[in-house]
Design a protein around this nucleic acid. Structure first.
Lengths: 178, 178
DNA sequence: CATAATGCCTGAATGAAATTCGGCAACAAT
DNA sequence: ATTGTTGCCGAATTTCATTCAGGCATTATG
C-alpha cells in the first residue's frame, strides 16, 4: 500500500524524468516562447515533430506551467516595487491570510523561516498606493506588524533558469554497511 | 533644449500611451501567450489584424519585453527558494557586486531602502547548495553580511499584472494658481 | 460649414507554421 | 530471436500569422 502524499504545493507529475534534451528545450523556451518548432528543433538538434511531442509532454506534466507575456511593470504604471515582511498571530494557510492574494498589487506570498512569518512581493503605482495596501494588510485579521523594503533599483530580474546549478555537489553517503 | 535623462533602469519608450484596450490585451497575454490573434480579438472586442497591430506596437515599444515559458522550478531540481539580504560596505552598481548576477541561482537583485543594502531572490537544489552560494557571496568583495529567509511554502507567485491598481487614488493638487 | 487628412478598423488573400499521420530504428523484456 | 515499446523522422493537412486594399469616424483647416 502506498502512502498518499497529497501535497499542498502543486507537484510536477514525475511520469518521465527530465533529460538533457528537455533542459535545452526549456532553456530556449524560457528565453523566447515564440520560437517555431522548426527553429527550436534546429537549435537543440531535433526535428519539428519531435520537439513538438516533447513540449506537449512538458506542458501536460506541468513542467511548463504556461506561456506568458512578460510585461514591463513601469509601462503599466507600477513604478514602485517593495518586499513586505508580515508578522502574524497564527501560522498556516488560513482563509484570512489567503485573502491577501486578492489584492492585485501582491505578486508573491511566501511563508518563510526567519524573524518574520510571511514575505510579500508587491508592486504599486507610488508610495501612496503602497500605504493603501499596507492599510488593507493591517486590516486583515491575524496581521500584527509589517516591515517594508522599498526597492530603489532592480539590477536583475529573470524568470527561473532551466539548468541545474549544482555548483557544490550535494555530498552523498559513501558509507558501506557491513 | 531637452535634458537627456539617460536612466539606468530600462525605460519603456512612451511613444503611444497605453489605453484600456492595451491593458485588456496585456492581461490576456499575461495569462496565455499562445492565444491566437483571432481569439485574442474576440476576447477584447477587436479584429485580428487590429490586435496584431497593437501587440506589435506593444512589443516594439518595450511594454511587452518578451514571451517566455514559465517553468516549474521544482521540476528542474530547484526545490529551495530563499530571499537573501546582503549588507555591503559601499553602495551602487559596482562591478564586484554585479558579479553576483553571474551566479545562476540568483534570479533577482534589488537595492532596497531599509536595514539592508541589497535583496536577492535565489533558488537552489537544497540547503547545501544554498550554503555554497552564500560562501560565494561572502567571497565577493564588498559583502560584509547576509541574512537568509528560506521559503517554507509559496502561496502565490504570479507575473506582473496588467491592470492599474489605484485603490486609493493618488491625491492630485486641486490648487488653482492665480 | 465643407473638405481634406489622419488614424483605426473590417474583411479577404497569401504564405508560413502547428499539428497529425504513417513508417522506421533502437532498446528492453520475455 | 521475437515482440512490444519508445522515440524519431518526413510528408500531408489544417490552422494561423501577416499583409493588403478599402471604409468609417474624428480632427484639423480653409
Amino acid at each position: 500500500m502506498t502512502i498518499k502524499t497529497d501535497d499542498v504545493q502543486p507537484k510536477p507529475s514525475a511520469d518521465h524524468a527530465i533529460d538533457g534534451m528537455d533542459r535545452k528545450i526549456l532553456g530556449a523556451l524560457i528565453e523566447d516562447a515564440t520560437l517555431s518548432y522548426a527553429d527550436l528543433g534546429k537549435r537543440v538538434g531535433l526535428s519539428a515533430p519531435a520537439v513538438h511531442e516533447r513540449v506537449k509532454r512538458l506542458k501536460r506534466s506541468g513542467v511548463i506551467r504556461r506561456m506568458a507575456a512578460l510585461v514591463d511593470p513601469r509601462a503599466v504604471g507600477k513604478t514602485l516595487l517593495a518586499f513586505v515582511h508580515v508578522d502574524t498571530t497564527g501560522w498556516g494557510k488560513t482563509p484570512e491570510l489567503m485573502a491577501i492574494s486578492e489584492h492585485p498589487e501582491v505578486e508573491e506570498i511566501h511563508s518563510v523561516a526567519g524573524d518574520t512569518c510571511m514575505l510579500l512581493k508587491v508592486r504599486t503605482t507610488d508610495t501612496h498606493a503602497l500605504e493603501g495596501l499596507l492599510a488593507r494588510l493591517y486590516a486583515t485579521p491575524g496581521v500584527v506588524a509589517t516591515r517594508s523594503y522599498v526597492a530603489l533599483s532592480t539590477y536583475l530580474e529573470r524568470p527561473a533558469q532551466a539548468g541545474v546549478t549544482e555548483v557544490w555537489p550535494t555530498p552523498r553517503a559513501r558509507v558501506r554497511v557491513v
